[in-house]
Amino acid sequence: MSLNSAVLFAGLVTATVCLPIPARAQETTAFVLATDFSAQDTVIELDIPANMDGDSFYIVWGIENRQHSAISRARAGTHCYELRRHPQWQGLVKAVAITLPNVPGRIKKATFFDEIDMFLEPERIAPTTINFLTGHALFTWSWNTFLLIIPFLSALWLAKFKKKPLVLCLALGFLVSWSVMDVRTTYDHLAIMYKKERYQQGMFPLTDVKAFADRASEIIGRDPWGIRGSVDGVYGSFLRYRLAEQQYVPDGSQRPPSYWITLDPKGDQVLLHQANYYLVKNHQP
């Protein structure tokens, strides 16, 4: 099978992959990178075009009769993507595929520079960032493991050369480790700012709903509006927030709104369409 050929994982992928797209599950196609290889010590390398930077995608692979997947964020340029920490990335892999179209990629053994490059993969802004961070790994070890070793090494150095009590050395060692952690975090912040400013791609995954809501707000004006059907999760929250100063008509209200925001226009007159979102005029009294 050649690279980027559309694959046959599609059925399986649909079952397991739940991309952050509003409303229902959507058919997702995966593109094969390699087949029949040993997962031992391998990572995948992708050549991502600049306009895809930050895009969320799945890496899907099959071992024997089972399929596994891992979510990742695209980095513009040629970069490796870590799979070795995934417990299911082992043994003979029948095929590995990604859900990004037209992206060349390959399987390889990570070099020293690849290891450093993967370690420097920045934290991304995601809806989950407010609750937890994804963290980093170096040479397949959790970054926390290194941060735990640093205090003891620092303490040994301080105890030997500064002749301070061990407890004080450990405390100072913790500060050294915490500083190293903070330097890495600072790099994350700088990378986030740089990428956002350079690629101007908006705030994934709210980019479409924001563009839609900004325009819908102008069209709706002072008239009442409502949501027909369900717009789930953060997308619905964003719509209600963005239009919070305009008269909202909740579900079940006796007086219908002048406009509906919906994912399914049902043949109504569409005033605005962006991605999955429709603004339709309500003609019913």
Binding site: I125, I130, M193, L206, G233, V234, R240, Y241
Partner: peptide, 15 residues
């Protein structure tokens, strides 16, 4: 440089 983004803020606080 970014807009209100996180869910609880869009709902409970700034919403």
């Amino acid at each position: 440089r970014t807009h209100a983004y996180f869910d609880d803020n869009l709902q409970h606080w700034s919403g």
